[in-house]
Design a protein around this nucleic acid. Structure first.
Lengths: 171, 171
DNA sequence: TACTATGTGTGATTTTATAACATTCCCAAG
DNA sequence: CTTGGGAATGTTATAAAATCACACATAGTA
C-alpha cells in the first residue's frame, strides 16, 4: 500500500518524501507498536520503545551510533550493544528495517502484517521512502523457481534522486 | 565470515548453483574484461586484474579483507585501500558487484551489456547466484513514478536457501 | 521464596571502510 | 627525449560498523 492515511499526509509521495503531521505520526506508530507487542507477547521495553521513537521522530535512516548518541542523552546505556539489540528486536518484529545500502535503520511505515518492503534512497539528501515490492513475482522469482532456490526474504533498495532534489537540480 | 578456504568445486554450489568448467570460466571472463577495458580505454592494471581473478576463482562473495590477504600472497600492497580501490574500479565498470547484505564482493557473471543484477544468497552456505531483475517495472517502478523519484540503480538481494542446502536439509 | 528466561550495562575487540599524503607509472605535449 | 600532469599505487593512521564476553538486573513463574 503506497497511499497514506489522512494523518500521514494527503498527496502522492509515500512517507519520507511527503510532509505530514509528525507528532500524530509518531504517537500513532508508537501506540500501534505497543498494541502489536502486547498482542504477540513481545516485551516492548523502555530501550526498545525509545529507539523506535527516535527512528520515528527522525523519519529517515539513522546509523546505530547516531541512535546510540540519542539513547545516551536520554540516560540509557551508551555502548553499541544497547542500540544493536534494540534494533535487532525492532527489525525482527517488523517495526523497523535495515537499509543495507546505508548501514542504517528506519522505522517501518506500515508495520501492519508481514510485508515485503522496498526503499527509495535519495543519494543527494539521504531521504528514504518505504514502499512495497513483489520481487518474487518477477524475473527474480522465476530464476529462483528455475534453480530451486527458496526465497525467504528480499532486500530491494533503489538509489536515485528524490522529487525535492530533482527540483533543486533542475532549478 | 565470507572468507572461504576450499577450492572451487570441491563442495557447495558454485556459479549460479550449477557446476561448470571453472578454468575456462575464469580465463574467458578475464579475457572478456580485458577486451572490454581496452575498448573503453580503461586501465586494466595488474592489481585490478588480480582482484577480478581472485573473485572469479573463488566464485563466491568475498570480503575486502579476504581479497587483501590473497593480494598480499601475490606480492601486491597489503593495506585496505589497495583492495578497496580495485574493487571500486571493478564495481564502477560492471565487472564485479557488491553484495550489500554481506558487505562482500563477487565477480559479475555477464559483464557484457549493462544490466540490473539481482542476487540469491544462501544463508546456509553463503553461495551467491547472480540473475537479472527489472524491479523498476513492477510495484517499485510504479511507486517511483507516482512520487517523482528518479531511480538510478537498484539493489536486489534475495536471502534464502540454495538447492543444494535445501536437499541437505530435507535429507 | 527461589528459579529461570530474558533483557540490560559495560569493556574490549573484531570487522569493514576511508582519510591523507608520498611515490610511482603512464603517456602525451613540447 | 624529457618533462609535466593525471592516474594509480603504497603506506600510515583512523573512522565507522558490528560483535563478543561476562556481570548484573528484572519479569514471570513454580
Amino acid at each position: 500500500m503506497v497511499t497514506n492515511s489522512d494523518e500521514h499526509g494527503s498527496d502522492g509521495p509515500p512517507l519520507g518524501f511527503a510532509h505530514h503531521d509528525h507528532g500524530v505520526c509518531v504517537s500513532d506508530a508508537l501506540a500501534a507498536a505497543e498494541a502489536r507487542c502486547a498482542a504477540e507477547r513481545l516485551r516492548f521495553t523502555p530501550v526498545r520503545r525509545k529507539v523506535l521513537e527516535i527512528l520515528l521522530q527522525e523519519h529517515r535512516a539513522l546509523g546505530a551510533y547516531a541512535i546510540l548518541d540519542k539513547l545516551r542523552d536520554d540516560g540509557f546505556g551508551s555502548q553499541p550493544p544497547v542500540a544493536y539489540r534494540a534494533l535487532d528486536f525492532l527489525v525482527a518484529n517488523g517495526l523497523a528495517h535495515k537499509i543495507e545500502r546505508l548501514n542504517a535503520f528506519i522505522a517501518c511505515v506500515h508495520p501492519s502484517r508481514s510485508h515485503t518492503p522496498a526503499f527509495m534512497i535519495c543519494r543527494l539528501c539521504d531521504a528514504v521512502a518505504e514502499t512495497q515490492s513483489s520481487p518474487a513475482r518477477g524475473a527474480l522469482g522465476e530464476a529462483a523457481r528455475a534453480t530451486g532456490f527458496r526465497i525467504e526474504r528480499t532486500v530491494v533498495e533503489a538509489e536515485g534522486v528524490c522529487p525535492a532534489c530533482v527540483d533543486k537540480a533542475d532549478a
